[in-house]
């Protein structure tokens, strides 16, 4: 896996890095973290330019976020047509993104990155303000790119070690968020007709 990808990165360079980060922001399963790590590693040996790699990765990621947001926005109309209970949940989701969407977008860029693409779609579909989304998206992507390209650059000679540890850790972080979210939902729904404090 590492060797095939590294081979692709060295031969297709910036185009590949840009495409990988772009696609991964749309939930296309591309091993982007490995691509960025290899790019960083080859920059350490001066085969590639560190800043150019980082710029290509960042451009792809930010444009990918925008594409995901736009797609979500396009299908927002479908949500508007919802009635009854569904409409209520959608209204709640909108209120939530409005209140806490910013940090959510930011953290789902790098700390819980497997969740990122879905947050893009949801942010667009629930009508999060574009400027706010974009600001947090750019900030988050800067952290993501710096983290992975930087790790590749710093630990160039231990590429495989860093790749396996980072990919498992980010899986665990994203899993934890979903587990906690589901757990909270189940907890609220676990008591039959409990009197709600008002």
């Amino acid at each position: 896996m590492t060797d095939t990808l590294a081979d692709l990165v060295i031969h297709y360079g910036l185009t590949l890095i840009f495409t990988a980060t772009f696609l991964s922001c749309l939930a296309v399963p591309v091993p982007t973290s490995l691509v960025m790590l290899s790019a960083g590693a080859f920059s350490a040996g001066e085969d590639l330019n560190l800043w150019a790699c980082a710029a290509a990765a960042l451009a792809g990621a930010v444009l990918g976020d925008q594409a995901g947001f736009a797609l979500g926005l396009r299908f927002a109309g479908v949500l508007d047509r919802a009635k009854g209970k569904a409409a209520l949940s959608i209204a709640k989701a909108r209120a939530f993104t409005e209140r806490r969407g910013g940090p959510g977008v930011f953290l789902s860029r790098w700390l819980f990155s497997p969740l990122g693409p879905y947050v893009n779609y949801i942010a667009g579909a629930t009508g999060m303000a574009w400027a706010r989304f974009s600001l947090w998206s750019v900030l988050g992507e800067i952290v993501w790119v710096t983290l992975y390209v930087g790790a590749g650059f710093t630990f160039a000679d231990q590429l495989e070690a860093v790749a396996t540890i980072l990919s498992n850790a980010s899986g665990a972080a994203a899993g934890l968020v979903v587990t906690l979210g589901l757990g909270a939902w189940l907890w609220r729904h676990s008591a039959p007709r409990r009197r709600r404090p008002r």
Binding site: D3, D7, I10, A44, G45, E46, A156, D157, Q158, L159
Partner: peptide
């Protein structure tokens, strides 16, 4: 377990850097 082996995907510059 950290000792890498020289492999086909590596470039001369990468090897020089990684093996110091």
């Amino acid at each position: 377990s950290r000792d890498q082996q020289v492999q086909g995907w590596m470039t001369p510059r990468y090897v020089a850097h990684s093996w110091k």
